[in-house]
Design a protein around this nucleic acid. Structure first.
Lengths: 346, 346
DNA sequence: ACAGGCTCCGAAAACGATTTCGGTGAAAAA
DNA sequence: TTTTTCACCGAAATCGTTTTCGGAGCCTGT
């Protein structure tokens, strides 16, 4: 029942803790026979080093922190999953924390993780975060931070992102190429950069195709909910009878639109095409299934950890971290809420 | 940039580390003035105790482990969320791990967490787990374990569960009371206890209402997917033209059924009622919306932590843990895939 | 026989915080 | 004046592991 320690092994074998430790780590200055004896006893007593003591001595905990705005969220839970998987391969464990989009919580959690001596932190900014002192403090303390998804260009750190602008551009372009002429855009609050970029991407696609931008076609969600999509769908149709495309900045809202269109007997995609964003699980179960932009959460989580691991290693070697930015490619997943593209000539 | 330690504070103030430590912990044998000086310097230098050192000394890490079969899953991500929230209130952090329903991974993760000196472990068994030696080992080492959702009656530990049998009974009863006479049941693999219990609940409800059990009305999913529901829906209708109710053991499958019924122009709920299980988010966005049994993940996560915390405390006091089992109540959420109940006379 | 070179092991310091057990000095009591 | 009491502080051990440095013992070569 009590844990086996180095000392216990040492006394049983009539050795010192130093020798036992070195034997287990295969130091060259230990006799082969002794090593064998030590290893045998260690395995038979199921010795496991106390990682608290190791951490104290080696100044590393082999634990990292992961801070996200929301856990119950398809995209972010994918991030968690990818991150944990990558971490495990390198022998790291992951402490998960949630900010609920609150700046205060973000600050607190950062502090908590620092006290726990984590070796690094993965962070997706909360919508409320406008200043970055708290993050700089962490970095200055020698704890590497990697930002992902919701980032800030003002923070000098490694980052993992998608190109929201390009992705939104492609989504809009797709709608246009499939025959849409009048496309409404449902956007969210302009606080997170992602929302801004998706809006810009939409506008750029219009410009590229010489479609004049019409501000009355832009609808703003008060909250990021199914209900908002449901509400706005009717408004869109009332305002513009000839709308033939809707690009929503997130799937959840697009799903609400779909539902309302069904109820209003508006044919999707024959009359109006609907395009979402994120490629959540629910895109596959709506009627009709929802076309969307795939946002690769799992890959982002993996890459974010790998980047952090690299930073941890360079810091351990005493070198300076050179921030690196990885952009994960996105792609459109066409389903039944948009019309088919004419096949391109090769 | 370097962290402030007790020693640093001590040398600056011309005191010993012992005095500084005691001053910060408000020991009675320290002069009030000294305390003030210490605290002031500590806050101004932003002193944070090294939790590795604290853990080593006090034999507690203030970290717990949470092992679940799958992270990207509505129910389990709710569990994570609830658990983290409860843990935070008590000053604990949570390391999250995922087994992918694999016994081997469950064993490895348990070992990893033990080495990290977590103060306790929250565990939902993988479907592959049939023996429990590895869990007993953990408990014998003095690390409390609390099981939740997927448990085993053979393990002597605290548990947080729902009464799957009663919940399934109620769901079936609801279908019957709303007028269904011939109810099909879609069940999963009979490995996890939950699936078995839901099946039993279904049968008990039939018995209670003098409806003979008909094995040809039981359909088995090969996998826990939307596609399986889609596939089985057609089979059900082909086998039994007069089926008027379907009780699926999980929402995802029920959603597939709904989709197929829509395509086959089968009126839901007029011709066939459909009842799911778990009350996932997606129940609200299907057409029609899906009636389901609410499975309170968030609450379960919270309660599981609280139970673990209690066990940790009793163990610290040197007392023996008396395993406790908490049952979280479930309830039916009627939506549009089932007919309304006649109002009961009060 | 003795310097030099091996091989193998252990003492000890270090990581940072905690806590017991004295100890010092001054004030109060005798 | 001497003893007791008290308030206040510090030395040192402890948690378990790692690593440097030195040293004991033995063998080799001259």
């Amino acid at each position: 029942m009590p844990k086996t320690t180095l000392k216990k092994l040492a006394t049983i074998l009539g050795l010192s803790t130093a020798t036992v430790s070195k034997a287990l780590k295969n130091y060259p200055d230990i006799n082969a026979d002794t090593k064998k004896r030590v290893i045998e006893l260690a395995t038979s007593l199921n010795y496991q080093p106390n990682s608290l003591a190791q951490g104290l001595r080696n100044k590393e905990s082999k634990i990292i922190g992961l801070i996200i705005p929301e856990i119950v969220h398809h995209f972010f839970s994918n991030i968690i999953s990818g991150c944990i998987k990558a971490a495990e391969k390198r022998g790291y464990l992951v402490i998960v924390l949630q900010t609920n989009e609150s700046f205060e919580q973000e600050k607190n959690h950062l502090k908590l993780l620092m006290n726990k001596n984590v070796d690094g932190i993965l962070l997706s900014l909360s919508d409320d975060t406008t200043q970055h002192k708290h993050i700089k403090q962490v970095i200055d303390r020698g704890i590497p931070v990697v930002l992902f998804d919701k980032i800030s260009k003002l923070i000098k750190s490694s980052k993992v992102i998608i190109d929201d602008q390009k992705a939104a551009f492609n989504a809009t372009q797709y709608l246009i190429e499939s025959g849409c002429k009048k496309i409404a855009h449902i956007r969210g609050d302009l606080k997170p950069q992602t929302t801004i970029d998706r809006f810009i991407g939409y506008k750029k696609a219009l410009a590229k195709n010489n479609i004049p931008f019409d501000n009355s076609l832009i609808y703003k969600c008060k909250s990021l909910t199914f209900g908002e999509g449901y509400r706005l769908a009717k408004k869109i149709i009332q305002d513009h009878k000839d709308v033939d495309g809707v690009f929503a900045f997130t799937d959840l809202v697009a799903t609400g639109v779909l539902k309302r269109f069904n109820e209003l007997k508006i044919q999707v995609p024959e009359q109006v095409s609907v395009m979402g964003f994120s490629d959540w699980f629910l895109t596959k179960i709506t009627t009709p299934t929802l076309s969307s932009v795939h946002q690769p959460g799992f890959e982002m989580g993996q890459q974010a950890f790998e980047l952090l691991y690299k930073d941890i290693c360079t810091l351990k070697k005493g070198e300076e971290i050179i921030p690196q930015i990885i952009e994960i490619p996105t792609y459109i997943v066409p389903r039944n809420s948009t019309r088919k593209l004419a096949k391109k000539a090769k």
